[in-house]
Structure formats: structure tokens, C-alpha cells
């Protein structure tokens, strides 16, 4: 008999929280009953949400204390407005005081909520600054990406500022989304309707092969929980030396993959055997291409 699976991709933010956290352990900060709704949307005639599209709070993962934020991708594409952003920033700043085993960000977002452009942009900077402050204090920050909206725009930078990223194959991570690239650069550059292309260039497998994601898991809330638990209290150093080394690594990478037009070409240069088969590989066969997440994390 197959064990029951609960799709992470299909779940709402609150369902993801219920599956991630130990039963009954979630205590929400600024809950929907407080009605901290967007001050900007009513002026535009757009409906608000009682939680402004993100639930934040504290709970336990396998008995260990965490602070957690879950973006609701169904509300305005998970986009970050003023209140939404302030909730995430406040959660991160709280981590400096309570020092949990980790701060977990369940990201499902197109980036800044354009209806609140300036406030959303400022929020993005505040969140990123707070992530770095939390990491500097030695608390692990872990991002999870596997929802319908992927993780785009400013929040993709936030994700890459975290200690770890856990993704499913369904997840996507990129600065600009497919439609944006097509609009700006033309369909010859990027066909946003070509779903396979989108996943080959932005999807979970590509990000894992490039080392940007630290674990690739099946589309299952339990699998996300296991992977996240494995990264708790395992901060990466955030020293000047570590940042300089990362900068040098990225510069070398840019050179190494210059001229690649597709993920497949990148995988080929990485030395992946039969790179064209990568999109068809099951999770286990795919992960066998790589050192285990635990090894890779060292």
C-alpha cells in the first residue's frame, strides 16, 4: 500500500502549516481576527484578506521550536504588500530575541504586490535585511519553495539570502518570471508558454543541480517537513570571507555557463550523464546524480 501523500503544491498556506508543524503547536501572531488588512487595496477597489496573504507565528517541527511564515499563493499570487511584508519582517526580528532552531519561510509568490509598489519594494529590502541579521545572529533561516506561484521577484533574492532552500520539482525560483522575460526580451528569447522550458531553466531540478537549492523533495508536505527538520540549527557562516568566496564562485559560474541557451546545456557542462533525461527522472534517480543533501551541506 502506498503511504498517503499530501500535495504541497495544491495545499493552502494554512494547510501547509498544519502539515509542517507538530499537531496543535502553531501559535499565530497577528491572526486574521486582528484584521491587519492592506490599507492600499480598498482605494483600488480590490478585496482584502484578513491575514494579508501570509500567516506567521511560532510552532514546533519534530519537537523543535521554529518561527514560521507561510505565504498564501491564492491571494494576489502571494505578492508582498506593506502589511504582508511587515509580518514577515517582524517574525524575523523576533527570532533575534527568542532564538528558535530555525526560521522557516514557506514562499509562494510573484514578488512585490504592484498595487502597493513602493511599500512592497521597501518591505522587500526590510525582509532581506532581517534575514541577514537573523543569520548573523547564528539562527538558521530556511526557505521552502513548491507552490503554484514559485518564488519570483524580490522574494527570490530573499530566498537566496537564506541559509538553505528546500524545493520540489514543481517549485520554480527566478528573479524575472517567464511572462516578464517574454514581454521585455521577446518570444524569441523566452517562450513563456513553453512549460518544459520554464522548468528546465527555473524549476526545482535545475536549481538543485546548480547548488542553489539544498534539497529536492517530492511534492509532499511530509517530505518538506523532513528536509526542513534536517536543516534546523545548521546555520551557514555569514562572514565577509564566506561572502567573498560566494561572490567569486558566482562570477566563475557566470563564465563557465556563458552562452548556454537552455538548462540542458548547463547540465551537460556540469557533467550530468544523459542531461536530456533529467526532466523525466524520478526523485530518487535524480537525487542519485548528486551528493546527498547532508553531504552537500558540509
Amino acid at each position: 500500500m502506498r503511504p498517503a501523500r499530501h500535495s504541497y503544491y495544491e495545499a493552502t498556506a494554512r494547510r501547509r502549516l498544519a502539515g509542517l508543524l507538530d499537531e496543535g503547536s502553531f501559535r499565530e501572531y497577528c491572526p486574521p481576527t486582528m484584521r491587519l488588512t492592506s490599507p492600499h487595496l480598498p482605494a483600488l477597489g480590490v478585496p482584502v484578506a484578513f491575514d494579508d496573504g501570509v500567516a506567521v507565528g511560532e510552532g514546533r517541527v519534530q519537537g523543535r521550536p521554529v518561527l514560521v511564515a507561510a505565504q498564501e499563493g491564492g491571494f494576489m499570487g502571494g505578492a508582498v504588500g506593506e502589511v504582508h511584508g511587515a509580518k514577515i519582517t517582524g517574525l524575523l526580528e523576533r527570532a533575534l530575541d527568542v532564538r528558535p532552531d530555525g526560521v522557516v519561510l514557506l514562499l509562494d509568490t510573484g514578488g512585490v504586490r504592484l498595487h502597493e509598489a513602493n511599500a512592497g519594494l521597501i518591505a522587500m529590502g526590510e525582509i532581506q535585511r532581517a534575514v541577514l541579521a537573523v543569520r548573523h545572529a547564528g539562527v538558521s533561516v530556511i526557505a521552502a519553495i513548491g507552490g503554484r506561484n514559485g518564488c519570483y521577484g524580490g522574494m527570490s533574492m530573499v530566498a537566496r539570502s537564506c541559509d538553505r532552500i528546500v524545493m520540489s520539482e514543481e517549485g520554480r525560483l527566478s528573479i524575472s518570471g517567464p511572462e516578464v522575460i517574454e514581454t521585455v526580451e521577446g518570444i524569441e528569447e523566452f517562450d513563456s508558454q513553453d512549460r518544459a522550458l520554464v522548468w528546465r531553466t527555473m524549476g526545482g531540478k535545475h536549481r538543485r543541480l546548480l547548488g542553489e537549492a539544498d534539497a529536492l523533495v517530492p511534492d509532499d508536505i511530509g517530505a518538506f517537513r523532513t528536509a526542513i527538520a534536517g536543516f534546523l540549527d545548521r546555520p551557514r557562516p555569514i562572514t565577509l570571507d564566506a561572502l567573498m568566496a560566494e561572490q567569486a564562485r558566482l562570477a566563475a559560474r557566470l563564465e563557465r555557463f556563458a552562452g548556454c541557451r537552455d538548462g540542458v546545456e548547463v547540465w551537460e557542462r556540469l557533467g550530468v550523464a544523459e542531461p536530456k533525461r533529467v526532466p523525466d527522472l524520478g526523485i530518487d534517480a535524480f537525487n542519485a546524480l548528486l551528493p546527498s543533501p547532508a553531504e552537500a551541506a558540509e
Partner: peptide
């Protein structure tokens, strides 16, 4: 004391009972 169901999206709604 309270429940919240649904998501505010196109063709969808959230309902809170307190």
C-alpha cells in the same frame, strides 16, 4: 473561538466566524 476558511481569489472567498 474562531475559524477562517477559503482564500480571497478570483471566484473564491474567505469566511471567518468568530
Amino acid at each position: 473561538d474562531h475559524v477562517l476558511v477559503g482564500v480571497v481569489g478570483s471566484g473564491n472567498l474567505e469566511v471567518m466566524i468568530e
